[in-house]
């Protein structure tokens, strides 16, 4: 008990200390931004203070909130769709060797197809509205998640499968006690990279196809040559992504994969 508490303290201390490292590198980044901005002048690159000031103004005027909400809704809808469909189909493809061999060329095509090409097709199919960004996000994230789920299922240790058969595990138990815990360690990184991808794609799609959202706001600020507002929107975008990743996905990952940390920290 005492030992477990000690382990927990050590792990938390370690995490906080690594937080200091991240803060320091963020500080260096801001310093370089500030220096470059001072050299180039506000028309080319506003300083961090100016960008944050503009962002604050956007929030204060009530302009930022709804746009961020719209963008987040589209990105998350496309992301959720690809998580659902990609994970399920990837798992199914991983179980069967034939299916994974058949899936490989299709996935290569999907990965190789540039998102901007999908965007053009989506514009033709869905027009201006939520359909276009959501579809583009979905189709760009789908192969990443599909491959993650398929690799996870394919790489499952054959020795553990033998254990499962030897001890007469039911299909349900094989799934929940053997397959899923292993697959999750492949799925999570795939989900996280797909989430980052969804945030980039949604803005691109909005820039070209919609009247609202961060992407559309960026298009407006560009046409007004308003660099400060552009930077403010970019900061808002990156900030939202970081918040989702570190406040939602990272804690979830640490919880689901606690066995991995305990195993490595005590050996």
């Amino acid at each position: 008990m005492k030992r477990a508490a000690g382990d927990w303290l050590a792990a938390t201390g370690h995490y906080l200390w690594s937080g200091w490292g991240s803060l320091a590198s963020l500080g260096i980044f801001l310093a370089i931004w500030e220096l470059t901005a001072q050299q180039l002048g506000p028309l080319i690159l506003p300083t961090p203070i100016e960008a944050l000031g503009t962002l604050h103004g956007l929030f204060a005027s009530g302009a930022a909130g709804p746009e961020i909400a719209v963008t987040a809704r589209r990105a998350l809808a496309g992301f959720a769709l690809s998580v659902g469909v990609g994970s399920l189909l990837g798992l199914a493809a991983g179980v069967s060797l034939t299916a994974s061999m058949m899936a490989r060329p299709i996935i290569t095509v999907l990965v190789g197809m540039p998102p901007i090409a999908w965007l053009i097709l989506a514009l033709l199919w869905f027009g201006a509205g939520d359909g276009t960004p959501v579809f583009t996000v979905f189709i760009a994230c789908f192969p990443i998640i599909f491959v993650g789920a398929m690799q996870g299922t394919r790489t499952l240790d054959g020795q553990l499968k033998e254990v499962a058969r030897m001890f007469g595990l039911s299909t349900w138990m094989k799934l929940t006690d053997v397959y899923l815990p292993h697959v999750v360690s492949y799925l999570f990184p795939a989900w996280i990279s797909a989430l980052g991808m969804s945030w980039k794609i949604v803005v691109m799609a909005e820039l070209l196809s919609t009247e609202d959202g961060i992407g559309a706001a960026l298009a407006v600020s560009r046409s007004h040559l308003d660099t400060a507002a552009s930077m403010a929107w970019i900061v808002a975008l990156v900030g939202t992504l970081l918040a989702i990743e570190y406040l939602l996905l990272e804690p979830l990952k640490r919880r689901v994969e606690s066995w991995r940390e305990f195993a490595s920290s005590s050996n």
Partner: peptide, 20 residues
Amino acid sequence: QPRLLPWKRTLANIGLGLKA
């Protein structure tokens, strides 16, 4: 090799066959 499931605590590993 012991072939214990790495994501289950030792107690749950021992009880695997019973759970099945």
